[in-house]
Design a protein around this nucleic acid. Structure first.
Length: 144
DNA sequence: TTTCTGACA
DNA sequence: TGTCAGAA
């Protein structure tokens, strides 16, 4: 039985690795830049062996993608990296919150309803997240 | 063929 | 940063 590290995901994302060529195709960042970014300590590749072909984790691939987004927004490389790091920090928290508080999703005619369960321990109100016409909102309903 | 390092414009 | 050379 394969062992899943990190989280309880069905796919062991730690085993999803990409070569520098793949990262170039996916993110649009040149190999020259990737090597430079690594040299500057902005990103990290898996095998730090000298002369060996670089490999990047899925996490790093995401990180690089986010950096390019902030770069496109006009940030300097340094601040784009900082922004990407901040974004990275949010992911575990967002995952945990959704995993524990999102009880289900209902699809109705014109809208989707996310069930976030009871508002508090009195169990008198339930809170829902609404997605309708590309807009989102909350709704609280009494459940006597 | 692809990637690596180092170097130059 | 792009690109080129010479070596894995």
């Amino acid at each position: 039985m394969a062992e899943l590290s990190g989280n309880d995901a069905f796919i062991d994302t730690d085993k999803l690795i990409f070569g520098i060529g793949q990262v170039q195709q996916i993110t649009g960042v040149s190999g020259r830049q990737l090597r430079y970014w690594e040299e500057q300590g902005y990103i990290q590749s898996l095998n730090q062996k000298k002369g060996a072909a670089r490999e990047y984790s899925l996490h790093t691939l995401f990180f690089i993608f986010h950096v390019t987004r902030f770069l496109d927004d006009g940030f300097t490389l340094q601040s784009a990296v900082d922004k990407a790091k901040q974004f990275d920090r949010q992911l575990p928290v967002l995952r945990q919150f959704l995993r524990e508080q999102l009880h289900g999703v209902d699809f109705q005619d014109d809208r989707s309803i996310l069930d976030f369960g009871y508002v508090d321990s009195s169990h008198t109100q339930r809170i829902y997240g609404i997605v309708k016409n590309g807009e989102t909102s909350f709704e609280i309903k009494n459940v006597e």
